[in-house]
């Protein structure tokens, strides 16, 4: 799935990373607990979360994730946006709740595919 498809499926707004819309993602995870995200390795994946702080961006960076979707209309701070730009991570925001947002992407063909080390 391309990032632009995630944007369309979730009716999401692109906060940064407009140039990354054609990038492919192969897996996703949804969580507000960053250590749970860090427990499962995936390649080129997207993180859906309702948590808004700098650690979300750093967690994604550590995991080599390419896109973060903020749910429930949460908006990242300027500082977070700068961090994401530095790390080459696209940020999206949707008004959908976490469960629904994950469901829509799953339905659209994006699976979990995480491998617990």
């Amino acid at each position: 799935m391309k990032i632009c498809q995630i944007k369309d499926l979730l009716g999401a707004k692109v906060i940064c990373g407009e140039d990354m819309m054609d990038r492919h993602v192969y897996s996703a995870c949804g969580s507000d607990m960053m250590s749970d995200v860090l427990a499962y390795v995936k390649d080129q994946s997207v993180l859906l979360t309702g948590l808004v702080n700098s650690q979300v961006i750093r967690t994604a960076e550590m995991m080599d994730m390419v896109c973060i979707v903020f749910v429930r209309s949460k908006m990242p701070s300027e500082e977070m946006i700068e961090l994401a730009k530095d790390s080459g991570i696209a940020l999206l925001a949707t008004d959908k709740r976490l469960y629904e947002a994950c469901g829509k992407l799953y339905e659209g063909g994006l699976r979990g595919n995480g491998v617990k080390k």
């Binding site: 507000d32 607990m33 960053m34 250590s35 749970d36 860090l38 427990a39 979360t49 948590l51 702080n53 650690q55 979300v56 967690t59 617990k116 080390k117």
Partner: peptide, 18 residues
Amino acid sequence: IRSLGFGAGMGLPNMKRY
């Protein structure tokens, strides 16, 4: 700390895992 996204009790296990 939990409200900040950590404190799930996965830190040390993750460190060992990786």
